[in-house]
């Protein structure tokens, strides 16, 4: 039972950091660059993506013994497309502001490499509960990745964090960081760099985050190599000292 618990936790956490679908496997980049202009849109996109991923993983895992090998891919695609269409209709009905902000990118969850990838690589080979946990982890990791990109883009690009435009049950709040704009649109000060709201900024933020992660990984590898080399030198010195002592004794 203890092994089971550790396994589930590792399954869940791997989607967030070690195998983060956006920053490590670099999949699903299209919505990541297009919907991260504001933090609210990123949260909405991540939420819809997680729902589709969980549903598709669970259903594919349930049906994994019934689907023949040859039609695996079209079958998975139809399953994913079904859930995406249902989610699209529900969003249009109950969160129309999110639907009009995300636009065609809700439909594009169908061709998101992550959903199809997890269905083929994991859900078709593992049980329902494991697939569910895997989907939760991957979805959460993707959402956090989207939010981190949107954080940079919105703060630098528009200068303030706006809540309440999409999730209309939150009152419209603007948190001023680089720009302070009152509710009647008078601008008190504006230090934002509007480049980051444009596609150029999306590429730059993505490159920056990937560069930072590569830097950290390189440092870790360098540290590990250094430690291993020190260990080898120490062992060689010990062996030499031992052989010299042995020689002296003789």
């Amino acid at each position: 039972m203890a092994k089971e618990k550790g396994h589930t936790k590792k399954n869940f956490l791997k989607g967030i950091l070690i195998e983060n679908p956006l920053f490590v496997s670099v999949l699903g980049t299209c919505p990541a660059l297009a919907t991260t202009k504001t933090i609210e849109a990123a949260i909405g996109m991540g939420l819809l993506f997680t729902i589709v991923l969980i549903c598709s993983n669970v259903l594919v895992s349930l049906l994994r013994k019934l689907i023949p090998e040859e039609i695996k891919t079209p079958a998975y695609i139809v399953i994913i497309a079904t859930f995406v269409t249902i989610v699209k209709m529900l969003t249009n009905a109950f969160l129309p502001a999110l639907y009009s902000t995300l636009g065609v990118f809700i439909s594009l969850i169908v061709v998101n490499c992550i959903v199809l990838g997890r269905a083929e690589a994991y859900a078709s080979k593992n049980g329902v509960f494991d697939s569910f946990i895997d989907a939760c982890g991957m979805g959460l990791g993707y959402t956090l990745a989207l939010i981190s990109m949107a954080l940079f883009r919105e703060i630098l690009g528009s200068g303030m964090i706006t809540f309440g435009e999409i999730f209309t049950f939150i009152p419209l709040t603007r948190i001023p960081i680089l720009t302070y704009m009152k509710s009647d649109y008078t601008v008190v000060y504006d230090y934002s760099i509007s480049l980051f709201s444009t596609p150029v900024g999306a590429f730059i933020v993505f490159a920056f985050i990937l560069g930072v992660m590569a830097f950290i990984k390189n440092r870790k590898n360098e540290l590990k190599t250094y430690q291993e080399r020190q260990e080898k030198l120490r062992k060689a010195a010990e062996a030499k000292a031992a052989s010299m002592q042995g020689g002296n004794q003789q």
């Binding site: 689907i67 039609i71 139809v78 399953i79 497309a81 209709m89 529900l90 009905a93």
Partner: peptide, 23 residues
């Protein structure tokens, strides 16, 4: 193969039609 694919396709159509009715 075709029966399975047909079953998946028709159940997907049914589910989507249901969601359409609701929304």
């Amino acid at each position: 193969t075709s029966v399975t694919l047909g079953a998946i396709a028709s159940s997907s159509a049914l589910l989507i039609g249901l969601a359409n009715l609701i929304t």
